[in-house]
Amino acid sequence: MTDSNLPPLQPMPADWQRALAVVAHPDDLEYGCSAAVASWIQDGREIAYVLATRGEAGIDTLAPAESGPLREKEQRASAAVVGVRVVEFLDHRDGTIEYGISLRRDIAAAIRRHRPELVITLNHHATWGSGTWNTPDHVAVGRAVLDAAADAGNRWIFPELAEQELAPWNGVRWVAVANSPNPTHAVPADRGLEQAVLSLLEHRAYIETLTDEDPETYVRRFLTDSTSAHSARFGGKPAVVFELFSR
């Protein structure tokens, strides 16, 4: 079924103030939804980033001990471009993240710390919209985020978090999954697109391993194409799309 046969994408909810984005790797948000993050922060909203790994297995030519600190530095610089000041790392192992209790607990703890109304993550489905196979890290983290949004509000799940002065938080109203093959909602990309380009460019060491093309040419084309992919369902406007789950 083509986009022209699908229902229009709905605008994302606007009645919230705090969001938490939880993804697997440095660059996931910059490839996924930083144009939306930039526009939300322009509107005065608060957004923090939590990454399950430091992306230490992501550069074939660099050993993890060297790659991890480099990619962390790039991620912090990238987040700053769109106005995100808080970036945390959970230190799960890149490439072998396991869905399970440990991951759910760590994400539930982050939700309790930051007390968001909106939680953002990346595609947890087995494939991307093109039918390309997704990575195990994305699947594990995305699924754990959906579960941890509920775990965070239940005092009897992970009671040890209360002993760490992390009281239950049942205030998550939505989980928004970026780059889902089944998008339902969208945010106009125009206001935040230039910041998104500059933000992704901060991952230069990683990008230079992916392509021989000029990094800015590559980044600008990628983000222009990705934000145009579903524009037919959003009034012809470039958009960052999400699959939205209400709670």
Rank of each mutant, 00 (worst) to 15 (best):
P7L: 02
P11I: 14
P13G: 10
D15Q: 09
R18V: 08
A21H: 08
V22E: 00
V23Q: 13
H25P: 02
D28K: 09
D28I: 02
C33I: 07
A35C: 03
V37Y: 02
I41K: 07
I41F: 04
D43N: 13
D43S: 15
D43V: 04
R45E: 00
E46G: 11
I47G: 10
A48F: 08
V50C: 10
R54S: 09
A57R: 11
A57D: 05
P64A: 07
S67Y: 08
G68W: 05
E72T: 07
A77C: 13
V82E: 08
V86W: 14
D91A: 11
H92W: 09
D94L: 03
E98W: 11
Y99M: 01
G100Y: 03
I101E: 15
A108P: 11
A109H: 09
R112A: 02
P116N: 04
P116H: 00
E117C: 01
E117Q: 11
V119Q: 03
H124D: 12
H124Q: 11
V139W: 03
A144C: 05
A148P: 00
A152S: 04
A167R: 10
S180Q: 00
P181K: 00
N182C: 12
R191G: 14
E194I: 01
Q195L: 15
A196L: 10
V197Q: 04
L198R: 14
L200T: 08
L201D: 01
E202Y: 05
Y206N: 10
E208A: 11
E216I: 08
E216T: 14
Y218G: 04
L223H: 08
D225G: 13
S226L: 15
S226Q: 14
S226T: 12
S231G: 11
R233W: 06
G236C: 07
P238T: 01
A239E: 01
V240Y: 02
V241T: 14
V241R: 14
L244G: 10
L244N: 08
F245Y: 08
F245M: 05
